[in-house]
């Protein structure tokens, strides 16, 4: 995916302002920034769900091809009807179907269910599951779409630690398989620990882009998030925790 000088305006005011971003295969990008920084808008514009100025390689594809190029997990866990888990995950096969589901489609659904640890949930009603289980079902739906690129908007918000770690691990595995993954995320600790690259947005602009340790430097944190953080390189990787507010005049 390649974005060039992407700008989204609400009225006159730019919400996303001249963003350039290229996502390569195998990258797991964390899109970070305070509330209102433009993370959600950037993802939606990149997919062509919003009118925008500039270039997006995804949005310029025809609708059907776009759906085979990128899967999108919107914010929130919005499931309108009490559908079965297997049926819901099978929705991800929609872009690939010419007629009825084939054996290959069913195999992709089974694979996605297994991958999210949902094999025992096939016949359950999606709306009757807990928040963490629903999040896994929705991720499985996106996995069943089997695209080279996955864009996810706050996929781990409101989940318990086990579910959060499980989801982040799956995203990292997808990247390791050679797919591109972009996740908008508020939890800087999870982002630092799992993502291969962080892109920090503030007021619609990219203010930092690079390896987590560099992006989460003291200056960016203070300017953009108004916090100080604690970093530690551990055998498990980078550990990061925001620990205190800094004066806004910094």
């Amino acid at each position: 995916m390649k974005l060039e000088n992407l700008t989204v305006r609400r009225g006159q005011c730019p919400v996303v302002d001249g963003v350039d971003l290229t996502v390569a295969k195998g990258e797991f990008i964390g899109l970070i920034g305070p509330n209102g920084a433009g993370k959600t808008t950037l993802l939606r514009a990149a997919l062509g769900l919003l009118p925008f100025e500039g270039q997006s390689s995804l949005a310029s594809l025809p609708v059907a091809a776009r759906a085979r190029a990128a899967a999108f997990l919107p914010q929130g866990r919005d499931i309108a009807w009490p559908v079965g888990v297997a049926d819901l995950v099978a929705l991800g096969r929609g872009p690939h179907l010419a007629g009825a589901m084939t054996g290959a489609d069913r195999a992709a659904v089974d694979h996605a269910l297994d991958r999210m640890g949902l094999a025992g949930f096939r016949a359950r009603q999606a709306t009757a599951l807990s928040g963490g289980e629903q999040a896994r079902v929705l991720i499985a739906r996106a996995l069943a779409q089997d695209t080279p690129l996955l864009l996810a908007d706050e996929p781990v918000a409101g989940l318990d630690p086990e579910a959060q770690l499980r989801c982040m691990q799956v995203f990292a595995d997808l990247a390791a398989e050679g797919r591109g993954v972009v996740v908008a995320i508020h939890d800087l600790g999870l982002a630092a620990r799992h993502c291969s690259r962080l892109v920090m947005l503030d007021k619609g602009r990219v203010v930092a882009d690079g390896p987590p340790r560099a992006v989460l430097g003291a200056e960016h944190l203070a300017q953009v998030f108004h916090v100080r953080g604690y970093h530690a390189e551990t055998p498990e990787g980078l550990v990061f925790q925001p620990i205190a507010l800094v004066d806004r005049r910094y």
Partner: peptide, 20 residues
């Protein structure tokens, strides 16, 4: 049918699944 199925997950998700 298929478009309405995709809409179960909301307008954004449906559009990203190729529904016009």
């Amino acid at each position: 049918g298929r478009g309405l199925d995709a809409l179960t997950l909301g307008e954004d998700a449906a559009q990203a699944m190729g529904v016009r």
